[in-house]
Design a protein around this nucleic acid. Structure first.
Lengths: 199, 199
DNA sequence: GTCTATAATGGGATAGAC
DNA sequence: GTCTATCCCATTATAGAC
């Protein structure tokens, strides 16, 4: 068996955990299921992490960063404002439909944090990061298109985040892609209508 | 010990389960915790329900109906359209802030259903009911105010549902009441702007 | 019908050989 | 450092006395 640096081991366990969670859910991602996925033995788990909870914290941070990085990657800055918005939203949505399981994991982890005393800050941090990312995207679009938003940025970012979360959750439940896309287009129109040329 | 009809027993267990879940979360609502809350013994549980899963199905149906009934109760039909919308949204929000735990349970149950093969329809039904309720509210408002919506009803209902879900979830994570209310007001404005007097 | 006791399972964590 | 074996606990579900 190869000897690996402790940090590499940890990363492999985190990746294995994410795969198991995406497939079967957070609850079913037991230490045993995770080490099996990683091709390791149970003993090594508690050599890498003090507890399952410590792993979950790291998984949460990783998933949050990855989700934002994915959004940043598909974020489109070409064309006029309506095009930019619409293309970005649709690219985001492609990611959701391509990977329902991993998307659901994000919400499961929020709830895990909210239900376990001492982890409230994990959930809070998750949303701080998501809201900041949304604000960043909105600012980039405004800059590129030479407009400003007519709604205060933190409020608008929360609004966008709410629609994206909400439309994702209802889609996870009923898989109505067409209606979901229609809602995203409404959000796009909404954003366009709340911009004005910058003086 | 009082002898009760089987259905009364079941109802009591469902209510006890909801209390435990609101307090501690769905995962921690074990059969033991539920019967303890109900003041019953473990043996009686499997006399009333075949399995914990069967109880959870009934709890999901009950919570969904109750959430919609609560919304119907606070739904306001007085004043002009903007008043109606704003008052209803704020009344809805009062319920969320007054009862974070019970609200979170709804999302936990959706995810439980999505993660347990064979229960997908439970999640789907939940959202069918929520979307229908939102459509119903929108139609009532339109009728009372003598307007019609400029967006197809199913799409608009999904949009409203998405914002409500999304703003609730982010609030559960970060408890930013002020920003959340601002988002709800934006939703209210949005609805007003997408109405027109009926010919 | 109601209870206690217990079976059967699966979990997180740990001890200790190698 | 790595593994196996095991501890100890909590869970769902059931058996069987009363």
């Amino acid at each position: 068996m190869p000897r690996m640096a402790l940090n590499d081991r940890r990363d492999e366990l985190v990746e294995a955990a994410i795969r198991v969670m995406a497939r079967d859910g957070v609850v079913k991602a037991t230490t045993r299921a995770i080490v099996a996925e990683a091709g390791m033995t149970l003993g090594v788990f508690h050599y890498c992490f003090d507890s399952r909870e410590e792993l979950l914290k790291r998984v949460t941070a990783t998933i949050t960063e990855r989700t934002i990085a994915d959004a940043r990657r598909v974020f489109t800055r070409e064309g006029d404002l309506p095009d930019m918005i619409r293309a970005s939203l649709r690219a985001f949505w492609g990611g959701v439909e391509a990977n329902p399981g991993e998307n659901l994991v994000g919400y499961e982890l929020t709830q895990y944090a909210l239900r376990n005393p001492g982890l409230e800050d994990v959930a809070r941090l998750q949303y701080v990061q998501y809201l900041e990312a949304n604000a960043e995207f909105l600012e980039l679009m405004a800059k590129d298109a030479g407009i400003e938003w007519t709604i205060p940025l933190p409020t608008l970012a929360r609004y966008v985040n709410a629609v994206l979360d909400g439309v994702t959750i209802s889609w996870l439940a009923d898989r109505e892609s067409e209606d979901s896309l229609a809602v995203l287009d409404l959000l796009g129109d909404y954003l366009t209508e709340h911009s004005r040329p910058v003086g």
